[in-house]
């Protein structure tokens, strides 16, 4: 019981801080494992259609362009660095540095979402929003002089994947906001910073998803030179 008296951050049902921290870490990783399987379903659909209609995937991916997606990739990698530095600051008990890095991470995350919004707007203007505003390219090309329904499937998947990723970003931003407020209120110390670490794990995971989405969605058509 003595451990409880010393550390108010240890909840009553844990024996000590070590057990609490290990439980939280394991729980977070289990949660991330479910997230992996959640995205796995989307990646499976992506892979299957890419295997079935590779020409559609190349051409439609080419239409996305790589500039904005590339910028966003860089932004997210930067945010992962700032997040890692934030956890580092928490480990060393540097409150100001922690809050600073958290804010930087949030700023980069918001930038990512802003760029994403610009992209979505472009897709709308290019009539590439399935179900709401979509125009087929007809004839598709010399080999397929007719409407190819998988064109829409590509963009549908694009919106599903980036949309769900975007929702995760929004969730991540909310979590970071809470963590920043907690840090501001001196909730953390060199012995207790588990929430910062957990938020970091989540943020890095969302970054990893994008690491896969970028080449799969944007770069697939990068070698496309027109023609067939």
């Amino acid at each position: 019981m003595s451990a409880h008296a010393h550390n108010p951050a240890v909840l009553h049902h844990f024996a000590d801080a070590e057990q609490q921290k290990e439980s939280a870490t394991l729980g977070m990783w289990l949660f991330l494992a479910t997230e992996v399987l959640l995205f796995a379903g989307l990646f499976l659909v992506y892979t299957l259609f890419r295997w079935k209609v590779p020409y559609v995937w190349v051409k439609e991916s080419y239409l996305l362009g790589i500039t904005l997606g590339g910028i966003n990739t860089a932004v997210l990698i930067c945010s992962s660095l700032t997040m890692a530095l934030g956890v580092h600051a928490a480990q060393e008990g540097k409150k100001k540095a922690l809050i600073g890095w958290l804010l930087a991470t949030m700023l980069l995350g918001a930038t990512f979402l802003g760029v994403k919004a610009i992209e979505y707007h472009e897709h709308w203007e290019h009539h590439k929003v399935p179900g709401l505003n979509f125009t087929y390219t007809v004839p598709y090309d010399n080999a397929h002089p007719y409407k190819v329904p998988e064109q829409q499937v590509f963009h549908f998947l694009y919106f599903c994947m980036t949309g769900i990723h975007g929702l995760h970003m929004v969730a991540g931003l909310s979590i970071l906001t809470v963590i920043a407020i907690m840090a501001y209120r001196d909730k953390f110390s060199t012995t207790y910073y588990t929430p910062v670490e957990m938020a970091g794990l989540y943020w890095h995971f969302v970054d990893i998803v994008w690491v896969f989405l970028f080449p799969l969605l944007y770069l697939t058509g990068n070698h496309y030179t027109g023609g067939h």
Binding site: L38, F39, A40, V45, F49, P130, G131, L132, F156
Partner: peptide, 25 residues
């Protein structure tokens, strides 16, 4: 529960969105 349920979850989302958007996955 941890490793299989999320695949059902995303499948259900795809069915719902497919109905909404009229796209054929």
């Amino acid at each position: 529960q941890i490793l299989a349920t999320p695949v059902l979850a995303i499948t259900m989302v795809l069915v719902a969105v497919e109905r909404f958007a009229g796209v054929g996955i």
